[in-house]
């Protein structure tokens, strides 16, 4: 770069970088500072306690359980969402019968694309209300109502979906997947459309089946998008605060009996309800670290040779 150019670039960057430092980096540093104190949350009086909060964290069964639930989400949410999205995207773009020799999606794919995107338009709060009605624990719930009508569930003992330790996490995963598939479908569709048609046609002429062309052509060429999706979904799985806190039992959710607890709900309860804010800040720092690690690991693990086309 020529002399003076650095200054020119820095001039433009100054404002956004300052914003970033003040509103992102500085709160992180503050949180870390508070995590070394016994701050009680409602005044600026506190004492320094060193790493006590962190040692207490590792003996806190509820928080440890919450980490495991986050890990479970981390494994299942991205895998299920991406697989479904890939499948649908492939069907919409290249899954149709080869009419007039070309490669096309299934009939009506234009409409499906729009319909699949609908859930993404809903905010998480609306989603929570909607699925609250689906999972409602008496005969008025959509699932229970249907199951009772079909005679699969006894009218006097309906399934309490969100109050069953064995179901509650899966019920939540279903909501996230339902919400997310449409978005990633559009993302993958866009990427698929940028794959040159002739590649598919060449494969078709060589006698490749639909499955083969998916695994040999589509997936390798989509890898960048899959990787992005994986990281996004991974970060979402590390959070889950809105759905868990609104849909499950207890203050800030996490019920029944901590069976759906995630790190953020434990953190909020300690921060606001119990007045153990310094301790909650320590949880926040652990969450930050884990999320960073997850992102790095996912990016590394999915790194592959890039194919130019």
């Amino acid at each position: 770069m020529r002399k003076g150019q650095h200054r020119f670039v820095a001039g433009f960057l100054l404002f956004p970088v300052a914003l970033y430092l003040i509103f992102v980096i500085w709160p992180y540093i503050q949180t870390f500072g508070y995590s070394l104190t016994d701050w009680k949350g409602q005044s600026q009086t506190f004492d320094f306690v060193g790493l006590d909060n962190y040692t207490a964290l590792f003996e806190d069964d509820i928080f440890m359980g919450a980490i495991w639930h986050n890990i479970l989400f981390l494994v299942f949410i991205p895998v299920i969402t991406i697989l479904l999205a890939l499948f649908f995207a492939f069907m919409l773009n290249a899954g149709g019968r080869g009419r007039s020799g070309g490669v096309a999606g299934v009939a009506g794919s234009k409409y499906y694309r729009v319909i699949y995107f609908f859930p993404q338009v809903l905010s998480l709060a609306i989603l929570a209300v909607l699925f609250g009605a689906v999972y409602r624990s008496d005969g008025g719930g959509m699932l229970n109502g249907a199951l009772i009508k079909l005679g699969l569930v006894d009218r006097d003992s309906p399934v309490e979906w969100l109050n069953e330790p064995n179901f509650v996490l899966w019920a939540l995963i279903a909501v996230v997947v339902w919400h997310g598939v449409g978005f990633y479908l559009v993302l993958f569709s866009a990427a698929m459309q940028s794959i040159p048609r002739d590649i598919y046609e060449a494969a078709l002429i060589d006698g490749a089946s639909r499955t083969q062309s998916f695994f040999r052509i589509t997936l390798p060429l989509l890898w960048d998008s899959v990787q992005t999706a994986w990281v996004y979904l991974g970060i979402a799985a590390m959070d889950m605060f809105i759905l868990v806190s609104t849909m499950t039992a207890g203050d800030y959710g996490g019920g029944p009996d901590h069976h759906s607890e995630v790190m953020s709900t434990v953190m909020m309860r300690n921060f606001l309800l119990y007045g153990r804010s310094g301790y909650a800040c320590a949880m926040g720092v652990v969450m930050l670290l884990l999320t960073l690690i997850v992102s790095v690991v996912m990016l590394r693990a999915t790194r592959r040779e890039r194919i130019e086309f």
């Binding site: 409602r136 624990s137 008496d138 008025g140 039992a249």
Partner: peptide, 11 residues
């Protein structure tokens, strides 16, 4: 009441 264990106060 069937299902009451999972209902909110309003429900």
């Amino acid at each position: 009441m069937p299902g009451t264990n999972g209902l909110t106060h309003t429900e």
